[in-house]
Amino acid sequence: MTGDRASPQGVGEAPVLHAMGLTLEYPGGKRAVDGLELAIPAGMVFGLLGANGAGKTTTIKLLLGLLAPTSGRALVAGKDVARSPAEARRQCAYVPELVALYENFSGLENLRYFAALADQPISQDAAIEQLRGVGLGPDVARQRTRRYSKGMRQKVGLAIALARNTRALLLDEPLSGLDPKAAHDFCDTLSAVVERCRMAVLMATHDIFRARSTCTRVGIMRAGRLIEEVPAAGLAAEELESLYLRTVGEASA
């Protein structure tokens, strides 16, 4: 299934993830995110590219309500993140770059705990199935996560996110540090999940090749602003790379 794109059917629908003039300015005047406009409907995987420090992670944290914007608004499924943070978060799952898990618990226990935290308890059998669905077998799922590779942690992180049955999924560089096979498996799983659940997905990544093959649309950020936004369909990898280098290059020029 790698190489297939998630269904673009959601394009044109009301956005599930919506940023309107979203801005975060730090003391001293530096803007980590500057007037960001973004609309991601259900079923769309939006790839956010950009150099380190471009504002990708900050954008995700603003959409999650982990950071408060200086101005602008972030909406998740129509809920204002600043005004109704709990309701907005209820519709939003998150997989960070380094999936944080309790090291003294198994992947299975972590999944069940985070599901319970979100008031969506999950049975042992359902949790095993959920983990199997993201490519983690029962034997591995029962091991303490301190022994997990990064790829295995990403799978647990994705399973935790999916167990919440949210309408939006935010992924912060989920492919970084994964070997090609693990990255391939992760994108494969993600595409299948999006197709099945029709989630709105925002994925920050440095991996141009995977972004092109997995995402519906791709945006390139620079200095907190979304400079370019193009459909990934029909775009050759070389074209996207060239666009990326040109956009990022202008920043460093």
Binding site: K61, A86, R89, P96, L98, A100, L101, F114, A118, I160
Partner: peptide, 16 residues
């Protein structure tokens, strides 16, 4: 330590 490992962000996003 939980914040450093990102666990606080994970639990924060769980609407607790």
């Amino acid at each position: 330590s939980h914040d450093g490992a990102g666990l606080l962000d994970s639990v924060r996003t769980a609407c607790v």
